[in-house]
Nucleic acid binder design. Structure first.
Lengths: 129, 129
DNA sequence: AGATGAACAGCATGTTCATTT
DNA sequence: AAATGAACATGCTGTTCATCT
């Protein structure tokens, strides 16, 4: 009798620039460290913040990032809040439930950020004399 | 009678970081402006150059970039050379056939590079006090 | 319109295979 | 192994649709 095991084929990174998802997660953690905004709010802020730079993230990416921070990383936790003054009665806010993990994640991403910075800077030097 | 027209659905960029392909094309143009290296050679150089940074591009990406520079952009042209001292008798080198287009392309990419730089720099400031 | 989410679709690119010298 | 290329596979993410207030 033969058992066939499907090898789950993961994919490696070549170490180019940081992925958008991780980039956004980083910002989301930092924002959640400050206050208790909800998804749409976080999206608006990031959208406006980077619009002058030419970067306009879609709202879905922010929600996906939030879901991953909760489900995969276990860093944040959702909470349903009845909000006055909001167009919607219920709004989902997140709070950081594992500050250590949050800090560790940020440090992890910092490696990516630094590498990205160095790569871009070098390319600017090398190609635009 | 009804005619159904399939709408070719293109995809926009949200303006996040520069794509690897464009990044490599930029380097390839710059290298070709200097000498006349061939694909494998260009790959080795870029691989070694960025290895200390943690970025290890695959060889296929370099070939794809070269093909696009020829077929899509019309900036370079292939030439088959019989090379001595090489392990292979024939080697494919490229030369820039449209320097103006090359320059224009580099300027185009510069916008992406600058934006990427700003985005990364801002994120470092905002998230690592 | 504000707010959240999921499904769908395109595409960039990592991986592997093929070929020749 | 040096050299080029294409085929195959997958993950990211842009777009759209659905739902609710």
């Amino acid at each position: 009798m033969t058992t066939i095991i499907e090898e789950k084929q993961t994919r490696n990174s070549t170490g180019f620039l940081i992925k958008q998802r991780a980039f956004l997660k980083l910002y989301l953690i930092t924002e959640l460290e400050k206050g208790r905004p909800y998804g749409y709010n976080l999206w608006e802020d990031l959208y406006e913040k980077f619009k002058p730079f030419g970067y306009k993230p879609g709202h879905s990416e922010i929600y996906r990032a939030l879901h991953e921070l909760e489900d995969d990383e276990g860093i944040i936790k959702r909470e349903i809040i009845k909000k006055e003054g909001s167009k919607r009665k219920e709004v989902i806010i997140y709070r950081i439930v594992d500050p250590d993990k949050a800090k560790a994640y940020k440090e992890l991403v910092k490696v990516d950020m630094d590498r990205s910075m160095h790569i871009i800077r070098k390319a600017l030097e090398d190609n635009y004399a």
